[in-house]
C-alpha cells in the first residue's frame, strides 16, 4: 500500500478541503497570525538582528525537518523494513522512535547545558544512568510486544505484498 493510494492529491483536495469553512478559517487564522503573531513579534523583537534570528529559527526548523530529519527517518524505516522480519519490525521501529524522542528530550541534561555551578538543583540527576534506564524500559516493552504479537504476525508474514 503506498501513500499515493491513500492520501488524495491535486484537484481532489481542492474539492474536499477548500470550501466556505476553509475561507472563514483562513480569514481568522491569517488575522491571528499577522496581527497577534507577526505584528507583535516586530514589536517585541524590535531590531532587525533579532527578527532575522527568529526567522532563521522558524524557517530553519522547516528546512532541517524536510531535508534532514524526515529523509533520515524514512531511510531508517526503509532499512528496518529490509532487514527485519514482519514479526519484529513494528516493535523495533517503535522502540527506535521512542528512543530518539527520549534522547532529544534529555540531550540538554546529558550535555549539562543550563547547569550553573552554584545551583545544584538544576539537572540534579545522573542523566546518563537515567537515560539508560528509560531506554531499557522502552526496549523491554518492545521485546514483550514481539513475544505477544508473535502468532498473529507469523500468519501475516505469508502475505507477500510489499509494505
Amino acid at each position: 500500500m503506498t501513500a499515493d493510494a491513500q492520501i488524495p492529491t491535486g484537484s481532489a483536495i481542492k474539492d474536499q478541503e477548500h470550501g466556505v469553512v476553509f475561507w472563514v478559517a483562513f480569514v481568522i487564522g491569517a488575522t491571528v497570525l499577522f496581527v497577534f503573531g507577526v505584528r507583535g513579534l516586530l514589536h517585541d523583537l524590535p531590531s532587525a538582528t533579532l527578527q532575522l534570528s527568529f526567522a532563521k529559527w522558524v524557517v530553519g526548523a522547516d528546512v532541517v525537518h524536510d531535508l534532514v530529519i524526515a529523509p533520515a527517518a524514512c531511510a531508517l524505516g526503509a532499512l528496518a523494513h529490509r532487514w527485519l522480519s514482519p514479526r519484529v519490525r513494528l516493535p523495533v521501529q517503535s522502540a527506535l522512535f521512542a528512543s530518539v524522542i527520549v534522547l532529544f528530550l534529555v540531550q540538554n541534561a546529558l550535555r549539562g547545558t543550563g547547569k550553573f555551578r552554584h545551583n545544584a538543583s538544576i539537572q540534579p540527576l545522573n542523566y546518563a544512568t537515567a537515560t539508560i534506564t528509560v531506554l531499557v524500559v522502552i526496549w523491554l516493552i518492545a521485546g514483550a510486544w514481539i513475544i505477544v504479537r508473535a502468532p498473529r504476525s507469523d500468519q501475516r508474514a505469508v502475505d507477500p505484498r510489499p509494505r
Binding site: 478541503e17 477548500h18 469553512v21 476553509f22 475561507w23 472563514v24 478559517a25 483562513f26 481568522i28 487564522g29 491569517a30 488575522t31 491571528v32 497570525l33 499577522f34 497577534f36 503573531g37 507577526v38 507583535g40 513579534l41 517585541d44 523583537l45 538582528t49 533579532l50 534570528s53 527568529f54 529559527w57 522558524v58
Partner: peptide, 26 residues
Amino acid sequence: YVFNFRPGHYRAAWITVGALIVHIGA
C-alpha cells in the same frame, strides 16, 4: 539564540496557532 525566550516563544505560539486555524479549516 540571541532573542529573549519569552517574547519569541509567545509570538511563535500566535503565529503557529494562526496557521493551525487555517490548517484545521482545510
